[in-house]
């Protein structure tokens, strides 16, 4: 239970600007339950919302970066583009998808370390 990082970001912003969730829904042109579902992590934040939020609340660069970080942390689903992937990469993606929910913290940390090493 609780708000996602994005939901918390928007909640704090609204309190500061004396707005409510209904105002957010009007500004974004969507229904209030949809805004609520996004803020509680049941739906992903639509990409087109970012410029609308930045403009409406006149966010500076620092705040915009904070918003993007909050959105990234709040993602409920991610897509992998496999168009140019090799067969091995495809097998890895499928295997990762199958095993994701069973991954324990230690294994996840070990995989992240390995992938970070690849990036360096």
């Amino acid at each position: 239970m609780g708000y996602t990082k994005y939901g918390e970001f928007m909640r704090v912003l609204r309190v500061k600007e004396h707005e409510v969730m209904g105002d957010t829904a009007k500004m974004l042109g969507v229904k209030i339950p949809f805004v609520s579902a996004v803020e509680s992590g049941k739906r992903n934040v639509p990409e087109e919302w970012v410029p609308m939020i930045v403009e409406h609340y006149k966010l500076d660069q620092e705040k915009e970066a904070e918003l993007l970080d909050a959105i990234e942390s709040s993602k409920t689903q991610m897509k992998l583009n496999l168009v140019h992937a090799s067969n091995t990469q495809r097998r890895l993606a499928v295997q990762f998808q199958r095993s994701f929910e069973r991954l324990d913290e230690d294994t996840a940390e070990a995989i992240m370390k390995l992938l970070n090493k690849e990036d360096q």
Partner: peptide
């Protein structure tokens, strides 16, 4: 304490 606005049929 948190809140959600839900569709009427929820």
């Amino acid at each position: 304490v948190r809140y959600e606005v839900v569709y009427n049929d929820a």
